[in-house]
Amino acid sequence: MDIQYVYILTNKNHTVLYVGWSKQLKKRLIQHKNNEKDTFTGKYNVHKLVYFETTKYVNNAIKRERQLKKWNRQWKINLINGLNPDWKDLSEYI
């Protein structure tokens, strides 16, 4: 059973938040960083991992991703601040 990741990315100014999920987060982060300008993360330079959580089950990850996508911006900011108040890039921990 693989670990599933739900994550939030941002740009350098923290003006854009992107929520996603993956079972291979390191590989997915590389894909985001190499995206072309016609993708959302490429267009807005959203490459900084500021939050992630794990679960064992794909269905739970998908459900959580959908939940976070529906949240308003302030709730997402509060979630990030709760675990990463300095908004450091957490990709080095993956």
Rank of each mutant, 00 (worst) to 15 (best):
S91G: 10
H14D: 05
W71L: 07
E36N: 15
E53V: 06
W87C: 05
R28L: 11
K37F: 11
Q24Y: 11
E65F: 04
R66V: 06
R73A: 09
M1V: 12
K23H: 13
N72Y: 14
D2E: 12
K26T: 11
N35M: 12
Q4R: 05
Y5G: 03
V16H: 12
P85Y: 07
N60I: 07
K63T: 04
Y5M: 03
L49W: 01
L49G: 04
H14G: 03
L49M: 10
N13I: 12
W75L: 13
R64N: 08
R73Y: 12
Q74C: 08
L68A: 03
T15R: 08
N34C: 12
T39D: 11
K88G: 02
N60C: 06
V50C: 00
K69W: 02
I8T: 06
H14C: 04
I3N: 06
D86L: 08
L49H: 07
D86A: 07
G42V: 09
L68S: 01
F52C: 02
G82P: 01
E36F: 10
K70I: 06
N35K: 10
F40A: 14
Q24V: 08
I62G: 01
L68M: 13
T10C: 09
W71Y: 12
N34I: 09
N81Q: 13
N34D: 15
I8L: 10
M1W: 08
L29K: 01
D89Q: 03
V6G: 00
E36D: 15
N78G: 03
Q31Y: 10
L79H: 07
N13M: 12
V6W: 07
Y51S: 00
Y5V: 06
T39Y: 14
K37Y: 11
W87I: 00
V19N: 01
E65M: 05
L90W: 01
D38I: 11
W75F: 10
D86E: 11
E53Y: 00
V16P: 03
N72R: 13
G42N: 09
H14A: 00
Y57A: 10
L9E: 06
